[in-house]
Amino acid sequence: MSRERMDQKAIDARSVTMATGLVLLVTASAFVTSWLIGLGVQRVAGDKMAPWILGRSAGVTSYLLLVALVLLGLVLSHPARARIAWPSSATRIRAHISLSVFVLVFTVLHIVVLATDKYANVGWWGAFLPMGSQYRPLPVTLGVIGFYAGMAAGLTAALAGRIARRVWWPVHKVAIVSLILVWLHGVLAGIDTPALLAMYVGTGALVVGVAFSRYTAVSHRDQAEDLADVRATELSGRRADTAPRAVVYSDDILGSDSRRSS
């Protein structure tokens, strides 16, 4: 048997192991989730506050998933991403896509529950139209716009590969606007305990830190620009009288040590 076939067999065996593991994991998490939901229903059954609690917990869950989604997005586009060995780039992009689905699910739950809850005083208008809510109109509006921005980011990414990158990629970046609005939405409407305040401050600082690292790191475009700045120079000789000016002179030819090194 050739070495390549042996490698192939090893890969097949590994994917079977991984698939089995995944199924067991999903089953286990389904049990745990059912148990938690059952516990929650028992706690709030018959309680007028049940929809409110459900709506708010869905909101907090959705926010945390969104933070994870944006963090992973920043890692995916980080100039140093090729140096990150684990998880692999394929796993990172799969996790990014899967997370977006769960963000959507919990956001929808959050919206539906609070829109239908008479006690919350938000209503369908408030859930989808800016300033349409009776309850804390400004914070709710921030959440509404944040939801639309998130939808724009998600839909354009879903079209990635079908439409040009220069079209979807700039739109996809509104994801960061979405997170900022959702963060304000949470801070303005949802910090009734110190624990929640700490959560918002902590996660916000984490995202700012990772974003700072991603946007200040030297990208390959910066490096290409540095290379492009070193121009060819004319040494001597006779040039054709009517030839176009072909060389851009640059003082930068000796200035390589003044440029950013990486």
Partner: peptide, 21 residues
């Protein structure tokens, strides 16, 4: 070499030297 050719009156087209990075 270009100087030599110019002094010898060679009928060359314009030739210049460029230095690349």
């Amino acid at each position: 070499a270009l100087e030599e050719r110019r002094h010898a009156g060679e009928l060359d087209p314009p030739i210049r030297i460029m230095l690349a990075p």
